[in-house]
Design a protein around this nucleic acid. Structure first.
Length: 354
DNA sequence: TACTCGTGGTA
DNA sequence: TTACCAAGAGT
């Protein structure tokens, strides 16, 4: 063993991790799914639940849902035993509903394994809803495994630190290699969360606060003068507008709700009957009867905008009805409708009260 | 690889 | 107001 080791191409930069962890110790955000500093080891169930909820979702949006879920289902076994409809309704409003379907599938898989989550990245990766990011994050945060945890925050921080100018998504392999080179062998969970906190509060997408950054002296993009320009992203496709109709059928103070098909848009969610949101704009009324227009709901999804025409009808004017359940109109907010249908429901109630 | 899949906040 | 953006996964 030599007294002073020479740097090698594979050597790890422990300096950066050290600076970041020092910063994290003083500046970590307090979030409902984090244990208080120096407290007990994190509960894998809570780590996993929070990570799934946080996929493409802000901490502010997640916090009330996390509290609701952990209060109602304190353990993964409790969640595994829940009714699908209850979990889907509890998720309503949080978006990306495939996450809720996979959440239940994962909870039941873990329950079938005895109620304990696997404690390695590879094993976690095989569970429903755990991709490369979430498997690495749970392995690091819940089980203190060294894992290269790369989310959008880490991509941004690393692209700037190393001045990686290749556009996303082509830059992903280079970003992962760079992230690996600064990932420490110890404090894996804290390091992952520190990178995300830095990205969320300092190294932000727009107007990064470099003067507060603990890694400023190490940042090649800062040295080059325009860190906010990284990472480079490909241009996005234009968002089309679709037309659709939703149907409000009422009888004895109750409205007809349906269950959407298991996969696809809003899959598995309770909803108003609709025409499938065809792009035709001439949506035939599938139910013969005396319909009258009840206003338009505008809603923006990830890849299209929707103009949803609300159609109103009394049930006794219809000769046939879709399969569904009659839900009390005065409790419509508790039905667990996705936001677009919650908007339509509020519009219908407003019309009905005029 | 490219596309689908929600929502609410921000500039 | 429009466009971008957030602790991505599945196909």
């Amino acid at each position: 063993m030599q007294a002073s080791a020479q740097p090698t191409p594979n050597s790890q930069d422990t300096q950066i991790a050290g600076k970041l962890l020092d910063w994290y110790d003083a500046n970590a955000r307090r979030l409902p799914w984090r244990s208080p500093p120096g407290e007990t080891a994190p509960d894998p169930y809570r780590v996993w639940l929070s990570e799934v909820m946080l996929q493409q979702t802000t901490t502010a949006a997640v916090a009330p849902y996390f509290t609701k879920f952990t209060t109602r289902w304190p353990t993964v076994t409790d969640l595994a035993a829940a009714d699908d409809a209850d979990v889907m309704a509890a998720w309503a409003g949080l978006g990306y509903y495939a996450r809720a379907r996979n959440l239940l599938a994962c909870a039941r898989a873990v329950a079938a394994m005895g109620g304990s989550f696997p404690d390695t990245e590879d094993a976690l990766r095989t569970l429903p809803g755990l991709g490369a990011y979430t498997a690495a994050a749970v392995a690091a945060i819940a089980f203190e495994r060294r894992a290269v945890v790369v989310d959008a925050n880490v991509e941004r921080v690393v692209a700037r630190l190393f001045a990686i100018k290749q556009p996303l998504p082509a830059a992903r392999p280079a970003i992962r290699t760079a992230a690996d080179s600064i990932t420490p062998d110890s404090r894996a969970g804290d390091f992952a969360q520190a990178m995300m906190d830095l990205g969320a509060t300092i190294c932000t997408a727009r107007s990064p606060r470099c003067m507060l950054c603990p890694l400023r002296a190490d940042c090649r993009a800062y040295a080059q003068g325009a860190p906010e320009r990284l990472p480079v992203k490909a241009a996005k496709k234009p968002k089309p507008t679709r037309q659709g109709r939703a149907y409000w059928v009422e009888r004895d103070g109750k409205v007809l709700l349906v269950q959407r098909a298991g996969k696809g848009m809003l899959g598995g969610m309770r909803a108003l009957p609709d025409d499938g949101w065809s792009a035709r704009g001439d949506g035939d009324v599938p139910l013969p009867g005396e319909w009258h227009p009840g206003g338009v709901v505008r809603h923006s999804f990830t890849h299209f905008d929707l103009e949803l025409q609300l159609m109103l009808c009394a049930a006794n004017e219809l000769t046939s009805l879709p399969v569904g359940e009659w839900w009390p109109v005065d409790q419509i907010e508790a039905a667990g409708l996705p936001t677009v249908f919650a908007k339509a429901g509020r519009l219908a109630v407003a019309e009905r009260n005029t």
